[in-house]
């Protein structure tokens, strides 16, 4: 077991190079603090398609196509495509994979799917099963609302703990070889259920899972000092605060190092309440905010912790609590 550090951290034999990446997003995301940093902005939520679901699929396909074009390669050079989204039976990703015509694993990790995909892609590369892999995830505010909550036109007052599903997608090409930035290791998350039942309060539900994964990594690697940031996926303002307190109880003071993609993507003025969420949240923020900084050398090393609430509308209605997961990947500047 020489590819393991400590108890739970997977160390890749060679870094999985992030050779190219692209992000697509909607208007609201572009009006936020990260505006102007996305590769393509959809002019409206439908973007000439017959349904929001089709628009979401296009968000993802565009991200993948732009990432491929940036790299100067075509989809048939991808040895394995990994991805997922929030739609029933992850159809947006499967239709993207249909277009790509590549070997494909559909993943469902809710909003942790990007980190899950990066971890698995790194594993495939490290194991020698692939030379080039692609990871893409997406979410769309309207498809998520109508599937998981209320009809989009219904006049409801959103809970203060509720989060706003990000309309956006990110695609990442991971390769063997030489490069500037890469994924070097990661932690596979455990399901942690802290008994939260309120499906309008995902941050509270997911905080415990994030803490478990962050502690697993820090216990194994003891390198809090060399990490620039620990970036959680979509805990939102409330979950972020809880996570910070819980980490302190476990002996890790991460006050200035803990960031959350759900808090970075929207402005407080944008009335999203607790922040952003969705598979597209960490996917867009990683590509629009963190990777450029890693490429430029402003950052050296981050731990991305994708957080996912693995509930379904049926399980909520049957009174089950929310099983949550967090997958961690370390992304480093390599030179």
């Amino acid at each position: 077991m020489n590819n393991r550090i400590g108890k739970r951290t997977w160390q890749f034999s060679a870094p999985a190079i992030i050779a190219s990446y692209a992000t697509t997003a909607g208007i609201k995301e572009n009006e936020g603090p990260l505006g102007g940093h996305f590769d393509f902005i959809f002019p409206d939520n439908l973007f000439d398609e017959a349904s929001w679901e089709k628009a979401e699929q296009k968000l993802q396909q565009y991200a993948l196509e732009i990432a491929l074009e940036k790299r100067g390669v075509e989809s048939d050079t991808i040895d394995c495509l990994l991805g997922g989204d929030l739609l029933n039976q992850i159809v947006a990703t499967s239709f993207t994979a249909r277009w790509a015509g590549t070997p494909y694993f559909g993943l469902y990790g809710a909003c942790s799917t990007l980190a899950e995909g990066l971890l698995l892609a790194g594993t495939l590369l490290s194991g020698g099963f692939a030379q080039r892999t692609a990871v893409c995830t997406s979410s769309h505010h309207d498809t998520a609302e109508r599937q998981l909550r209320f009809p989009t036109e219904m006049g409801v007052q959103r809970a203060m703990t509720a989060q706003w599903t990000v309309t956006g997608s990110g695609a990442y090409l991971l390769e063997k070889g030489q490069g500037n930035i890469g994924v070097t290791c990661g932690v596979c998350g455990k399901i942690i259920d802290n008994g939260t039942k309120n499906n309008m309060d995902m941050g509270t539900a997911m905080a415990s899972a994030a803490v478990d994964t962050i502690c697993a990594y820090l216990d194994d690697c003891h390198d809090l000092a060399s990490l620039d940031y620990i970036v959680t996926g979509d805990l939102g303002h409330i979950g972020w605060e809880i996570c910070q307190k819980m980490l302190l109880q476990r002996g890790y003071d991460v006050k200035n190092k803990l960031l959350d993609c759900g808090m970075l993507i929207y402005d407080k003025k944008q009335d999203t309440h607790a922040g952003g969420s969705g598979c597209g949240c960490s996917a867009t923020v990683l590509g629009a905010h963190f990777l450029p900084q890693l490429t430029e050398g402003k950052l050296k090393k981050i731990l991305l912790v994708g957080t996912g609430a693995l509930l379904s509308p049926t399980s909520t209605q049957q009174g089950e609590s929310i099983p949550c997961i967090a997958h961690g990947v370390v992304i480093e500047q390599l030179h």
Binding site: D39, F40, Y62, E65, I66, E74, S75
Partner: peptide, 13 residues
Amino acid sequence: LKKEHQALAYQEA
């Protein structure tokens, strides 16, 4: 067609 679609998406973006 696939190749062109990819290039067109990039152009548009």
